[in-house]
Amino acid sequence: MIEVARLTKRYGRKLAVDDVGFTVRPGRVTGFLGPNGAGKSTTLRLLLGLDHPDGGTALIGGRRYRDLRHPLRTVGALLDGAGPVPERRGVDHLAWIAQSNRIPRRRVREVLDLVGLTGAAGQRVKGYSLGMGQRLGIAAALLGDPEVLVLDEPVNGLDPDGIRWVRDLLREYAASGRTVLLSSHLMAETAGTADDAIVIAGGRIVAHGSLDDISAGHESLESAFFALTGDRRGLGGRGGRGGRGEW
């Protein structure tokens, strides 16, 4: 269970996350949707203690991320701008992560196998394709077999096969009673994966509920998305407060 309340983050004068609140329930896949610059990655960084909020709280299983006793066994995360040193071999990247949280070494082989990187494990990461890098990131998130998955645009760079694999993995994960939160700006993809959605635009939550509720009255999730976010584009938004008619 993820509980976010009144979360606010300012970069200079820019309000990147503005009074954001939502809960993510276990047993379901929750999509975190919004246009570029809406504040998705910032919210996820705040949730994982990689950025300091100006206000509000973000809890995972009732605790701040920084207070977790077993961070990687509790939460698996894939984040923008969090990855391996390019000169390191893929397997070594996973090896140190596993050691840091006392995850058995055999688990490194398991997740490499799971994401289909066994053959490339001994290669330096700088030789990886975009999709291979993404698979390595997902492998790192899965290392601790965590209770909660937080993935920032996990299908970015993946081929159709990879996308389907991620979808099946996340559905299975949620079906086993665990919590899955994934950000995306791909509506069609999210519609096929998520049960619930949180829509953010200009730093504010504009909709939160089951996919059916959100798409109700619209042709598709995509048209609902445009209707919800059309006047609150994150890019060029003014402090995230730009309501309709303000400019």
């Binding site: 994982l48 203690g49 207070d67 961070p71 984040l79 701008g81 969090a82 992560i97 840091s100 949280n101």
Partner: peptide, 8 residues
Amino acid sequence: RVSLLAAP
């Protein structure tokens, strides 16, 4: 960032 996720 990976390091701080592993050791917050």
